[in-house]
Design a protein around this nucleic acid. Structure first.
Lengths: 216, 216
DNA sequence: GAATTAATTGAACGTTCGTTTTATTAATAC
DNA sequence: GTATTAATAAAACGAACGTTCAATTAATTC
């Protein structure tokens, strides 16, 4: 009726995070009770307050770490090239891989924003905006280089993100399609959507060189 | 402290539905209390039970009517032609118009599915499946006629629906873009995504006629 | 091995929840 | 104008909620 044998703060906290993501994704933040979460971890509800001062703190921590993880993943996956088509392909691949791998956490971060305080909501939205800005930059560069055909950069970025993130709604690992197949298909849909011509970047560069050569 | 002057069951029920859609969209189903809903309508919580036997019945009614409305809207908007490009354009236009017009109700229908009982969830998903089936049929016809270029019909349908429905997340009437502008841009993104060639249907028909003429 | 710190239990707190019941008044029918 | 029906208020129900607190035991430190 007190500290249990083998209990370990680090392990318990990790178990709480994991169980919370899963429970909130399945039931919703409001519908999940602290008693349920405790039961899932194998601990009384009161023990949870050793790790997170309130239920909302727990939610916010999960969301912030998810968004920071997304930005870090992109920072690692970001290619060195300036070719917009290659950068867009990398963005799509990273986005889909990250979100399929963390379906539950993505669900939480996208659906439970309204349960955050105003200040914390702002923090999460700022992280999200930074991530989306990267995509808009790629689209703008591609449009200005003439290798993408885009009506409205902001609108296209939103459409692409909604389309890609939507994967988590219907995708189930081990069903009809593999992650690789899904990614390939989404990549070709993306490239068509932005009107990218295959190897348009190299063609454009060749053309520019030829023009420069003439100018000399 | 009982029936109030001017009270009218029909008006109250309509006010309850309207307030419920708005409150659930804003706060979430679990977070909205029956007392809050009553206050919004200008009535005690107990009075709500004259119109909906339980809170979940209220939610289910709103969702079912939303989905039925969507199917009816498509039934009305569905064009007579067999041209897949024209049908796809009509589908996109109807989808975007319907969802922008009913942003709150769409939010409710998409986000609160987990608060339904198993049986009722099945009913709603059946309606949704019927609606999505229409899009898959259009895509399949277009692919078979050779005027769309589609890797995977099911996956493309999901991608398109996620992309289009995503409009309600960021679109606010009266801001930078009008509904017409948004619709036009989404239409061209859709056509590019499915690899539709402009007037490909007419060209294909012309070609077929020419071949038939030769065969004679 | 005694003292200290870490981890947890179990009980309790005040609130709020969805819902039910009963009483009461407005509108309608005869 | 009386009887009936429709629409609501007010109060109450037990259950569940997030959270706090004191007590208790395991692990660690010295």
């Amino acid at each position: 009726m007190a500290r249990t044998t083998g209990s370990d703060g680090e392990k318990t906290e990790a178990a709480v995070r994991e169980a919370a993501v899963s429970l909130i994704a399945r039931l919703g933040y409001e519908a999940m009770s602290m008693r349920q979460l405790g039961a899932e971890v194998g601990v009384q509800a009161a023990a949870l307050y050793r790790y997170f001062p309130t239920k909302e703190d727990l939610l916010f921590t999960l969301m912030r770490e998810h968004m920071e993880g997304l930005l870090e993943a992109w920072d690692t996956a970001r290619p060195a090239t300036v070719d917009p088509a290659a950068r867009l392909a990398a963005y799509v691949r990273n986005h889909i891989a990250f979100h399929i791998e963390r379906r539950h956490a993505t669900h939480v971060s996208n659906m439970e924003l309204r349960s955050l305080s105003h200040e914390r909501l702002t923090q999460i939205l700022k992280l999200r905006a930074a991530y989306e800005k990267e995509l808009r930059a790629i689209l703008r560069d591609g449009a200005e280089a003439g290798i993408f055909e885009i009506d409205d950069v902001g609108l296209t970025a939103m459409a692409l993100i909604q389309m890609m993130t939507g994967v988590i709604v219907w995708f189930r690992p081990g069903e009809r399609l593999s992650i690789a197949e899904v990614t390939t298909t989404y990549l070709s849909m993306t490239m068509r959507l932005v009107g990218a011509k295959i190897d348009a970047y190299r063609a454009a560069r060749r053309e520019r060189r030829a023009k420069d050569a003439v100018a000399l």
